[in-house]
Amino acid sequence: MAIKLKPLRKQVIVVTGATSGNGLATVEAAASRGAACVAVARNEAALEALRARLSARGARIATCVADVSDLAAVERVVEVAIEAFGGLDSWINNAGIGTYGTLEQVPVADHRRVFDVNYFGVLHGSLVAAHHLRERGGGAIVNVGSILGDRAILQQGPYCATKHAVQALTDTLRMELDRENAGISVTLVKPGAIDTPFPEHARNFMDQPPRLPPPLYAPQVVADAVLFSCVHPRRTLYAGGGGLLSSILSQAAPRLTDAVMEAIGTKAQQKPDDAGDPARRDNLHHPRADALRGSQDVHARQSSIALQIQKAASPLLVLGMLGGGAVLAIGRHMTRTRR
């Protein structure tokens, strides 16, 4: 069955992790473009505030309180979508949590919790969505991964591991659905560093407040990539040119990239004297205050030229252009090193 995706204004879109950061930006953008939304999150109060705010603007929105690590809770999301809108057309697996600290510092129970949400939550959503979309005649599944699925970084080992796992899960799901001609598009969106409350929400074992390393991008950049994937079948989209470049460089020169990470990776992820909003701190097991953007003093780019190029050009052409740029950058670095 050929993949045929509806225009966004005719779609019903499920978004997990919908009350904060990338998920919140996606729901707001989808609603503004006429899509019906099913917003999913643990934070019931934030969900109700989101529903009231968007409904007042005339948006079509339903909500479902769910922890995506619970398969039964994820299955209820489909029931909400059917009851409110007759079904769903696109499912966005966005919910995620994290920790900061070395592999030894982070307790094994916290490693497992990060996997429960970031990997098993995506698995639950993917299986439930695929079952429903098969019966519906097709649609889109969009998984929000990370450039850290390509390139691990110090202090975020469990998170990096889950994003590597999400890469494998997404590729396997795509092949299985393609083989059966299910008519379901499967896309992996890989954000770079995005100005969300993630550093404040993450459980921190470092001796300094965490931050995301620059360059940062606004959550709307990720929403742009996600909603494009709901309408246009794509394998992978990188949200943010800085993250894309670091991913390519790490593949072309892995040991050099390791050395850079070892030298500056920890410092680049710390923000002394700026811990952000205490009400947001540590949502590993329970929801905390949610918001679109982080409260730390950072600069975030409002758009990504690299994303626009990916949307406009063929994937092979984009990889060729960026791969050539990475080779030139490595060549310049080696020349300077010899000198």
Rank of each mutant, 00 (worst) to 15 (best):
H132I: 10
V318A: 12
H232R: 08
P209D: 03
L237Q: 13
L54V: 05
D290T: 15
M1T: 15
T335R: 15
V114T: 09
L133K: 00
R288C: 14
C160N: 08
L284D: 07
E200C: 11
D171A: 09
G34S: 10
F198R: 04
P233S: 13
V80R: 01
D207T: 06
T172R: 15
F228Q: 14
K6L: 05
G149I: 04
P287D: 15
P272H: 11
P191T: 08
V27K: 00
A275E: 07
L103K: 10
E262K: 10
N181M: 01
D89F: 09
A56K: 02
E180K: 12
P254T: 07
L169K: 13
V114K: 07
Q11W: 02
R336T: 09
L284E: 06
N94A: 11
D224Q: 15
M175P: 03
V108G: 15
T266R: 06
R336M: 12
D258G: 04
S185W: 09
M261S: 04
V65A: 13
A25C: 00
V117H: 04
A49W: 12
S250E: 14
L244D: 06
A46I: 03
S314T: 15
V80P: 00
L249I: 12
T16K: 05
V122K: 07
L316W: 13
R51H: 14
H299G: 03
V78W: 11
H164W: 15
A62R: 03
A66K: 01
W91D: 13
A253G: 14
T162F: 13
A52G: 10
I264D: 09
R235C: 05
R53P: 06
R179H: 10
T26C: 12
L103I: 14
D290L: 12
P199Y: 00
N94M: 12
L47D: 10
Q11T: 00
T16N: 02
D70E: 03
D274S: 01
P278M: 03
L173Q: 11
M261Y: 11
L227I: 02
R112A: 14
L24G: 06
I184D: 05
V108R: 15
A306G: 14
V189G: 00
T236V: 13
G137C: 02
D116P: 07
A218E: 13
H132N: 04
A62T: 04
R281W: 05
R151F: 01
T162N: 13
T102G: 11
A161C: 14
A300M: 08
R211H: 15
P210M: 11
V189I: 01
S185K: 01
A326I: 12
C230P: 02
A29I: 06
A49V: 14
D258V: 13
P272A: 07
P107D: 07
D297A: 13
R211P: 15
R234I: 04
D150F: 11
Q167G: 14
Q167T: 14
L212H: 03
T257H: 14
A109N: 03
A29K: 08
V142C: 10
S185I: 07
G331N: 15
H131R: 09
